[in-house]
């Protein structure tokens, strides 16, 4: 069967099987920025935004995405919050092997969309579902702090 989605602001139709999860459908269609780390919804490497909310696409039935708006890491380059996050993740050394990075950035984007001035606790809670095995989180949390500061400063200008 086919599903229609709005992905990264583009209307697309994907061929899906009934028991497909969104992760596999996206990767089959070339959205390789969506990573598979556990297939159990534990590691968050497969995080994408569905109607603005982070979901673990490895557990999300593909058919449920019908008619929804999906954002992957490939679609945030021209986005105000997304591009700042990409920038500061590099500046702060929050990227090491890079495998968790797309998920981390998307979870951070979802946070900064609704909370312009998150506390450290808010950031930790928002990234609670994203595991990193390289950097030890400190730099990632610093990056999100710096991004929110940068975005606030830009608004004030």
């Amino acid at each position: 069967m086919k599903i229609k989605v709005l992905i990264n602001k583009e209307e697309k139709e994907f061929e899906v099987r009934v028991n497909d999860v969104l992760l596999d459908v996206l990767r089959r269609n070339g959205y390789y920025g969506v990573k598979c780390g556990c297939r159990e919804g534990e590691c968050g490497a497969c995080t994408v935004l569905v109607d603005g909310k982070p979901v673990t696409s490895c557990l999300y039935p593909a058919v449920r995405a019908e008619g929804k708006s999906i954002t992957t890491i490939e679609g945030i380059e021209n986005d105000k919050i997304g591009s700042v996050l990409q920038e500061v993740f590099l500046e702060e050394g929050a990227v090491q092997c890079g495998f968790c990075t797309p998920g981390m950035i998307l979870s951070s984007k979802a946070l900064l969309e609704k909370n312009k001035n998150p506390s450290e606790e808010d950031i930790k809670l928002a990234l609670d579902g994203n595991l990193c095995r390289c950097t030890g989180y400190v730099k990632i949390i610093n990056a999100v702090k710096k991004a929110s500061k940068k975005l606030r400063e830009r608004r004030e200008k």
Binding site: L90, G98, T101
Partner: peptide
């Protein structure tokens, strides 16, 4: 870092 941009953009840089 030289490969940084491709990582934050989610470019297809891994084996799979």
């Amino acid at each position: 870092r030289v490969d940084g941009i491709s990582l934050v953009k989610g470019k297809p840089v891994y084996v799979d």
